[in-house]
Design a binder for these strands. Sequence first.
DNA 1: ATCGGTTACCTTTTT
DNA 2: GGTAACCGAT
Length: 813
Amino acid sequence: MFPQDPFSGAPAPQPAAPAQTAPLLAHLNAEQLAAVTLPAGHALILAGAGSGKTRVLTTRIAWLLQNGLATPGGILAVTFTNKAAKEMVARLTAMLPVNVRGMWIGTFHGLCNRLLRAHHKAAGLPQAFQILDTQDQLSAIKRLCKQFNVDEERFPPKQLAYFIAGCKEEGMRPRDVPAHDADSRRKVEIYQLYEEQCQREGVVDFGELMLRSYELLRDNDPIRAHYQRRFAHILVDEFQDTNKLQYQWLKQLAGDVVDGRFEAHGSVIAVGDDDQSIYAFRGARVGNMTDFVREFDVQRQIKLEQNYRSYSNILDSANALISHNSRRLGKNLRTTQGPGEPVRVYEAASDFAEAQWMVDEIRQLVKNDGFERREIAVLYRSNAQSRVIETALFNAAVPYRVYGGLRFFERAEIKHALAYLRLLENPHDDTSFLRVVNFPPRGIGARTIEVLQDAAKSAGCSLHDAVSAVPGKAGANLGAFVALVQVLREQTQGHTLRVIIEQMLESSGLVEHFRTEKEGADRIENLQELVNAAESFVTQEGFGRDAVALPLDEQRGTLTQSPASQGLDPNAPVLDTPLPAAPGIVDADTGETLSPLAAFLTHAALEAGDNQAQAGQDAVQLMTVHASKGLEFDGVFIGGMEEGLFPHENAMSDRDGLEEERRLMYVAITRARKRLYLSHSQTRLLHGQTRYNVKSRFFDELPEEALKWITPKQQGFGSFAPHSGAGGAYGAGAGSRFGFKAETFASPPVPAQKAAPSHGLRVGIAVFHTKFGEGKVLALEGTGDDARAQVSFPRHGTKWLALSVAKLTVVDG
DNA sequence: ATCGGTTACCTTTTT
DNA sequence: GGTAACCGAT
């Protein structure tokens, strides 16, 4: 498809790059330059830790755009984490005055969400489908098990959830799963029932998001053809972490199988590092890298081995460690920086002492060596390890921030609030219904629920619809609950997100309930933060950005011929309307968008709240090693370097498990720029029990000459004498919400937008829509391309429409 | 039948 | 330390 460059390794000679390109390409080394200026075609870039991978990716995009080799609409860049996606957008914006909105840059799940919203009909979903997180999925499965009398001893719901997620990651529907014995047949049966339940309730889990959009592309020729033509340039970050399904998904976007041979249309650039593959436990296949080279007939591979991050003592340690792994693609990082400080290793008597040592070192780094606190990270293998360190930091009054653990949108009270909101959108969401039908308590107990579930099952309807079938006082209580939601829905019709949430908090009785609870103050505070979260979602990046649609001529992206509509499938009206460039939450057919509420709920499910990233305070960063991937810090502490913890005992069932643990350690080490500290403890309090651990085998795999062992002081650590009684009596009780609590969503409310509306609509006037007919405007939000209107249609109900896509005309009257 | 207090189990990592 | 399942008191 693209002319092949006869030189395979050399950077493509560019026809007299424009002068303005120079600063873009300045300061790139030869390897990086070659990667950025690759000619069209597929390529694999092996990018070692700290080799400027993100820089190469973003510069590549900027370079393509600047030289007219691509339009924004023709670019698809996919990552694994929201953090990485945001980082890319931020860097691109800084590089180029380009409209980033035209590009599809996001996580796999985020982009799948877009696809499914835009083509929800073809995908067989309601537009406002809700997304189940892992918790929701588990409770849905538990409910199913009760419903169908599944023996939960023999089939633990957790295991079933794992099984179902695993099947989906492999791209398997129930009928595709091989089942030879009675047990696995039963599991497949449950999988099938689970799918039916989700479909009935209009919800999808994370795996379904991927699988459904893969099938959408696979089975719908016009849609696939459209996106294949549109995305001439596909860039994949962290390719080593893709699972089987994600790879197949990429193949659908990139090309077709012709005569048993895969032929790709566009240009796919995969960036990855096999040494940093740490997600095999959730289905990631490093083998995708070699498959990619074979199936895409990759002609160019570039290794980025120059490390710009760390001093050589740190880098040598990383290289030495990872060399103990077999089956590597082979790659060695080098640096031109000097050796730097040795890697310091500390052996503590207890986890308390270990934490105290960390605090002391951190204070010295800040005081004597001029380190910023935000440039210091404490990494650990599992979240449970964070508490001791938090306590030590807290007692020493060192500001810190914890990433991971309980995330904002996963807190119980927030999930309750979200459940009410979801019921406003979709009364048939049984998971949400059950979560709050008796919370706060309103006289609806287990017995009543049982009757209701039986009624719903025999009528084949949702719990909501079965309420009227329950007789007596119990039925009346249920009716009151349904009425409450119904009234709330009517009351909030046409109101802003903020008002909707505040109303909900009041009339649901949630706030009232927590007011009377002892520990309720924190929860109420969190609920208040939910309002802030919604506020910043509406005004900042969130809803506005995703909902935007570009002007028509830009929408076509790189399409040179008319879109796939002609002559392919007369029954596919989907593509008659040109697709918006970023139909995040816009129906490709009607221009209908999600309500701000539904969009916010999607946001809550897809981004469990790591939004707290750029809060101002200079604080030490605490996180798991997994969470640290892609980040870097001047100083890094890795604690709990003990057998059973790191490497973790649960991961050691096979050889692959140990190698993954080693890669995890490799990732941890390579986070550090200047200083690296390792520590282990002889004893550790875990689940209230003292465990005696030996130091990690990884110490034996590090180069002795790069290490410096520190002997503990003989002094006791008075303030850290273990308390008597069960482990963590030191929390400050009621006030234990630490003073340095992340100001997650405490951003000041942004003043309401005052820009003059350009669409000429007003609340109350009548409008005409080509598909829905005449309707009345209930509410307006946003300006310019973001403008959207809530319109009530007599036939089709109340809908939110993106004004830049939906064809609305004002009806005289 | 429901509520509120108790216990048991958790915990490897995450979109 | 936190949550869900369990159990006795109302």
